[in-house]
C-alpha cells in the first residue's frame, strides 16, 4: 500500500510518502509559477528518495492540501491544511496540544485534543505581518542571504529594536529608516523576529496554549522566531526535525486512513 500527502503552499511544495504505515520518503521544493508541475516534481523526487519508480501513478491514494490543493490533478481527495498539520503533528508528537504553523503567506494557531482532533483554531486574515513573507522581505532589505540565516543573527542581540508598524509594507520602510539611523544589524534583525512572534501571539490570544506546544512550517526552522514565540507564549516550543512536512505527512496519514476504510 503506497499513499502520499502533497502540500502545496505559497512558497513550497511538500510530499510525504507512506508505505504500510512507515514514512518512506519526502521532498520539499520551491513553487514556481507552475503549481501543478511543482507538485508533480516534488512527488517524483520523494518517490526517488524512497527508492521507488518516480511516477505518481504508483500511488494507491493521494490527499492534497495547502492553498493550491484543488489544482493537484493526481489527488484523490483534498483536505484543508489545518487539519493535515494537526494530524501530522499528532503522529510525530502524540502529546502535542498546541501548534503554531507559520508558512509563506499564512500563519495558524491550532489547539488539538488527545486524538489529534482540532479543538479550535485561528488563521491570519488579510495581513502578511505574522508570516514567512514578512521575514523574507526583511531578510532582503537587511542583506541576509535567507530567512533561515537571520535566526542565529537575532539570537546574538541583547536589545531587540522595536518594530512598531502593523503593516508589512510600512514595517519595511521602518526598518530601512532604522538601518539608515545606524541601528545595530543584529538588534534590528532581532526586532523583526520579535515583531513576527508578537503578531502571532495577538492572533492566538484567545486560544489556550497548553503544553506540549509545537512550532511547524517553514518559519519554524528559524531559531529567532522560536525564541521570541517562547517568550510571548511563556512556554517551550518543540520543532519537529522536518517542520515543513507536517502538513504533507498529515495528508498522507489521512490518505492511508481513507484506503483502509475502503
Amino acid at each position: 500500500m503506497l499513499v502520499a500527502g502533497v502540500d502545496v503552499g505559497a512558497a513550497t511544495a511538500k510530499t510525504v510518502i507512506l508505505g504500510d504505515g512507515r514514512i518512506l520518503g519526502h521532498a520539499v521544493n520551491p513553487v514556481g509559477y507552475d503549481i501543478k508541475s511543482a507538485a508533480d516534481e516534488t512527488s517524483r523526487e520523494a518517490l526517488r528518495k524512497a527508492g521507488l519508480s518516480p511516477s505518481t501513478k504508483n500511488f494507491d491514494y493521494v490527499v492534497s492540501t495547502g492553498y493550491a490543493r484543488e489544482s493537484i490533478e493526481f489527488a484523490d481527495k483534498t483536505v484543508s491544511e489545518i487539519i493535515c498539520h494537526a494530524r501530522g503533528v499528532h503522529y510525530l508528537i502524540p502529546s502535542a496540544r498546541f501548534i503554531i504553523d507559520m508558512g509563506g503567506q499564512d500563519s495558524k494557531a491550532i489547539e488539538i485534543g488527545e486524538e489529534g482532533n482540532i479543538v479550535d483554531f485561528v488563521m491570519n486574515d488579510k495581513c502578511a505581518a505574522g508570516t514567512g513573507r514578512f521575514l523574507e522581505v526583511m531578510a532582503h532589505i537587511l542583506h541576509v542571504a535567507s530567512m533561515d540565516a537571520m535566526g542565529p543573527l537575532a539570537l546574538g542581540s541583547k536589545e531587540p529594536c522595536p518594530i512598531s508598524s502593523t503593516c508589512t509594507v510600512f514595517a519595511e520602510t521602518e526598518v530601512v529608516v532604522l538601518r539608515a539611523r545606524g541601528k545595530d544589524r543584529k538588534d534590528l534583525i532581532a526586532g523583526v523576529h520579535k515583531a513576527v512572534a508578537s503578531r502571532v501571539a495577538v492572533m492566538a490570544a484567545n486560544l489556550a496554549c497548553r503544553p506540549v506546544a509545537v512550532f511547524t512550517g517553514g518559519v519554524a526552522k528559524n531559531a529567532g522566531v522560536k525564541k521570541y514565540l517562547e517568550e510571548e507564549f511563556k512556554t517551550e516550543f518543540l520543532v519537529p526535525e522536518e517542520p515543513q512536512i507536517t502538513g504533507a505527512l498529515g495528508a498522507a496519514l489521512i490518505a492511508q486512513a481513507q484506503l483502509l476504510r475502503k
Binding site: 522595536p162 512598531s164 508598524s165 502593523t166 508578537s198 503578531r199 495577538v202 492572533m203 490570544a205 484567545n206
Partner: peptide, 14 residues
C-alpha cells in the same frame, strides 16, 4: 502608542 493598539487586536477587530 502602537504597542497598545496592537494588543487590542485580541479583543476587537482592526
Amino acid at each position: 502608542d502602537n504597542a497598545v493598539l496592537r494588543n487590542s487586536a485580541a479583543y476587537v477587530c482592526r
